[in-house]
Design a protein around this nucleic acid. Structure first.
Length: 492
RNA sequence: GUCCCCAUCGUCCAGAGGCCUAGGACGCGGCCCUUUCAAGGCUGAAACCCGGGUUCGAAUCCCGGUGGGGACGCCA
């Protein structure tokens, strides 16, 4: 049997990291077993759904690389994949339930039900629908209908014991007496969630339902509906929830919760996928860094753990750094380029021109130098700034820390002169010259190096200074050293 | 309140009766490398929620407690 799984988001918000992980698990399962990953939009709540949210969710999935086999934009044999376009189907299914006596019309007003619930809550009790409308006399019904009363449809929950073998929790049993006669069709003729999921899962031939833990208590309702429709229920796997640092359900107040935000913050989709996969799942050994292809091969439902997981971005940062470290330089350049442009640091044509003598475009060499120092793509902007501006700004701290010695200007001037005639201008030669100059002037190499760093980057920190000098090239390096000499001269 | 799920280092996971003196990763401390910052290497501190069972033997099985989470809508 070819597995068919689905991700069924409700477009009432952006793609949440919890939703993204649910989608990922479904996708991994489908790809692992050569099955189909179906995307279905649960937009039956017209009040809260919007086209903008749908686009956001689709974008988020695409960014993560979770492609769907059936669903919006790609279509498929079981469409439509928007629940808002399947209303007739739901009404038909409900009609069948009513005809078979498995469901009944309910004329109770939402106000009355709400009051009942509030009373019960005040008494510290749970309240279940009292089945008022199950036993209405034909006369009373005629009266209500004649009066134009709005009616919803409720499922008549049978006296039963429901049970299922959850793939992550094992056997879970529920007594249906704890389930009230829930509404399946609202008075505005829109189906409720419970009805539409089951109808669609049956229609779309879903074999495995992988969803959040919060749906465990809904499962009995769904099981009852599958039974009422005479359909075989799918296999269920309820994955634990993602919590914030305070162990509360992850929400806005914990910081970024949508994948779009993480994208904007400079995270790589591969890192995000790897990180999310490890939240609540493990391959069974100590593997951590697994590209998506490996995740696909190793994914299994029984590797999903039962407890909730705290979303800790510290580890995500580390993982992102690992992915940045190994990203092909072309891809890295493409990812960083728009960020540089946005910061008014757009690389020039010469910077990206192929350079056979040095093994690659100048920009590639720069990014490779910066790479181990970046945790997020956005870090590259500040890291690269000194290399992409014409004149660097000297940070006050750097000036105080490394340019206080009275003779430092002379030392730098000497170095500038020496480097100006250096040939070839490569790392070994530059290093030898810097050290020789320091030695000849009777100062520590470190002192000269620090001053040089301030001259060429304006900062106290940078990649290795010899690499930096070579990358900048002789002309620019010397010019920057000389400019510092001028700066110091003016200062004193 | 009722029902359900869960419970190993601060965090994410490994562990499915003896392999556990409880392993890995992030983070944190130290050391090394070193011109700075990173990266990298080595290393240290850090946990089986509590109480009863079962068993020759329990982190692993059972029961209870406690704690955390979830669900109880004409939301999904």
């Amino acid at each position: 049997m070819v597995p068919r799984v689905r991700f069924a988001p409700s477009p009432t918000g952006y793609l949440h990291v919890g939703g993204a992980r649910t989608a990922l698990f479904n996708w991994l399962y489908a790809r692992r077993h050569g099955g189909a990953f179906i995307l279905r939009i649960e937009d039956t709540d017209v009040e809260r759904s919007s086209a903008e949210m749908i686009d956001g969710i689709l974008d988020g999935l695409r960014w993560l690389g979770l492609d769907w086999d059936e669903g919006p934009e790609v279509g498929g044999p079981h469409g439509p994949y928007f629940q808002s376009e399947r209303l007739d189907r739901y009404r038909q299914a409900v009609g069948r339930l009513v005809a078979e006596g498995r469901a009944y019309y309910c004329y109770c007003t939402p106000e009355r039900l709400r009051r009942e619930r509030e009373f019960a809550e005040q008494r510290g009790e749970a309240w279940q629908y009292d089945r008022t409308c199950l036993t209405l006399s034909p006369e009373r019904i005629a009266e209500l209908e004649g009066g134009g009363a709005r009616r919803a449809v409720r499922f008549k929950v049978p006296l039963a014991q429901t049970a299922f073998d959850d793939q992550v929790h094992g056997r879970i049993e529920f007594d249906a007496s704890h389930v009230e006669d829930f509404v399946v069709l609202r008075s505005d003729l829109h189906p409720t969630y419970h009805l539409s999921v089951v109808v669609d899962d049956v229609d779309m031939g879903i074999t495995h339902v992988i969803r959040g833990d919060d749906h465990i208590s809904n499962t009995p309702k769904h099981l009852l509906l599958f039974e009422a429709f005479g359909a075989e229920p799918p296999v269920f796997a309820h994955v634990p929830l993602i919590l914030g640092a305070d162990k509360k359900r992850l929400s806005k107040r914990h910081g970024a919760t949508s994948v779009t935000e993480y994208r904007q913050q400079g995270y790589l989709p591969g890192a995000m996928v790897n990180f999310l996969a490890l939240l609540g799942w493990s391959p069974g050994d100590d593997s951590e860094l697994m590209p998506v292809g490996e995740l696909v091969v190793r994914f299994s439902l029984d590797g999903i753990s039962g407890g909730n997981a705290v979303f800790d971005t510290t580890k995500l940062d580390w993982m992102n750094g690992q992915y940045i470290a190994t990203l092909p330089v072309e891809a890295l350049t493409a990812a960083v380029d728009p960020l540089l442009a946005a910061a008014d640091l757009a690389p020039t044509a010469e910077m990206i021109a192929p350079d056979t003598s040095t093994g690659g475009p100048w920009l590639h060499r720069l990014l490779n130098l910066l790479r181990p120092r970046a945790k997020r793509l956005t870090d590259f902007v500040e890291l690269a700034r000194p290399f992409l501006v014409e004149t660097v700004e000297y940070e006050a701290e750097a000036v105080v820390k490394h340019l206080s010695s009275p003779d430092i200007g002379d030392h730098v001037a000497t170095l500038a002169a020496a480097l100006g005639t250096l040939e070839p201008f490569d790392e070994a030669q530059v290093e030898a010259m810097v050290r020789a100059t320091a030695s000849a002037r009777g100062i520590k190499a470190g002192a000269l190096i620090h001053a040089t760093r301030v001259a060429v980057t304006g900062r106290t920190t940078s990649p290795g200074i010899f690499e930096v000098l070579v990358l900048l090239g002789k002309t620019r390096s010397v010019a920057r050293l000389e400019r510092l000499v001028g700066f110091l001269g003016r200062r004193t």
